[in-house]
């Protein structure tokens, strides 16, 4: 596939993290006084060629986080560093060339593709915006369609209405790839798809990452898809990361009570191994008025007085394994301190 746009250079070398997010914060003000703390102090970094999975329930701020990182939504605080260079910091604009480096794939919905454009036109739009001639952009779009498994002769001229959910999602992926990005932010890319189609798209994403040397931030409410694609997993709860570790570590030894509850809530497909009782009760609290101290304490079986007063720091409990829970902080004053970790 001959791309009409040049590849973006690798400046920092293999050891430099591809993406580093520092102190990201975004609060939405509602009718003056009340505030939704959608993203409230987010830090993470993603190594080159790997996938960070961000998992969390509705209202935890994971989609807002993606838009903030992409620079499409203004942040109140924080910065994003891309391959050692500032991608954006508060108040700064991103140049069109740098812009290409970070692209998004959205949840398949009727709004993810322009209903008045054919598949090839949607894909060709980005390159055209960067000065590629329409003819060349169109040829490139056809090549990309081929790369995502849609034969261009059949699909290039179809409007989104004439595509199935899985096909639309492949077009979305091709559109994001058209700018030759280095980072893809995937916001619930498979959650609207049927399981058999989900597997196709997940495998496609895994394959493309290796082929095109991409780095992914994969956001989902579904633990199992995150487990499938992610090398590193961050668990979010009400705007904050409560646990982060390599996938092999977090799935083997989940440490935060919320992570454990989330994992234990996933039914298996074996009718002999049913879940006896729900791991936790209640719904996630309203992000408008999050609980004081540890935000999970209202649903946590181990909550003590300490949890209501102090916010637990995201501390390292083992190499590359960080947890925000008083129980993992030695001598924190929690009766279980040191036991759970």
């Amino acid at each position: 596939m001959k791309a009409p746009l040049p590849a973006l250079p690798d400046r920092g070398g293999p050891a430099q993290p591809m993406l580093t997010v520092n102190g990201l914060r975004r609060w939405f003000r509602l009718d003056g006084k009340r505030v939704i703390r959608a993203v409230d102090g987010l830090d993470f970094s993603v190594a080159k060629g790997t996938t960070l999975g961000i998992v969390g329930e509705s209202g935890c701020g994971k989609s807002t986080a993606a838009k903030l990182v992409a620079g499409i939504e203004p942040a109140d605080a924080g910065e994003v560093v891309l391959d050692g260079e500032v991608f954006w910091a508060r108040g700064a604009r991103i140049g069109p060339e740098a812009r290409r480096a970070v692209q998004m794939v959205f949840q398949d919905s009727h709004s993810s593709l322009n209903p008045r454009m054919t598949a090839a036109e949607s894909i060709a739009f980005g390159p055209e915006a960067h000065g590629v001639k329409p003819g060349a952009a169109r040829d490139y779009a056809r090549a990309l369609l081929e790369a995502v498994g849609l034969p261009p002769d059949r699909f290039a001229d179809r409007p989104p209405m004439a595509l199935s959910g899985g096909q639309r999602q492949r077009v979305n992926i091709a559109r994001a790839l058209a700018l030759r990005p280095r980072v893809l932010l995937l916001d619930e890319p498979v959650s609207a798809l049927d399981k058999s189609v989900e597997a196709q798209v997940l495998n496609l994403l895994v394959r493309l990452r290796a082929q095109l040397d991409l780095t992914y931030v994969f956001i989902s409410h579904d633990l199992s898809v995150v487990r499938y694609v992610a090398d590193e997993v961050a668990v979010m709860y009400l705007g904050q990361v409560v646990e982060q570790a390599p996938a092999s570590v977090i799935f083997a030894r989940p440490s935060h009570p919320y992570t454990r509850a989330l994992f234990a809530s996933k039914p298996s497909v074996d009718p002999r191994r049913r879940i006896a009782a729900p791991p936790i009760q209640g719904d996630p609290p309203d992000p408008v008025d999050p609980p004081s101290g540890c935000r999970f304490r209202t649903r946590c079986g181990f909550a003590e007085a300490l949890c209501a007063t102090g916010t637990p720091p995201l501390g390292t409990v083992a190499p590359a394994h960080r947890v925000a829970c008083w129980m993992t902080v030695p001598r924190s004053g929690h009766s279980q301190a040191g036991v759970a970790a």
């Binding site: 499409i72 069109p96 970070v102 919905s109 709004s111 993810s112 322009n114 055209e128 915006a129 559109r175």
Partner: peptide, 18 residues
């Protein structure tokens, strides 16, 4: 404007007029 395809277009760095 709230549709994801407009967000994607903004992400591409395309000028507003386009």
């Amino acid at each position: 404007r709230a549709n994801d395809y407009v967000v994607a277009a903004r992400l591409s760095g395309a000028p507003t007029s386009m």
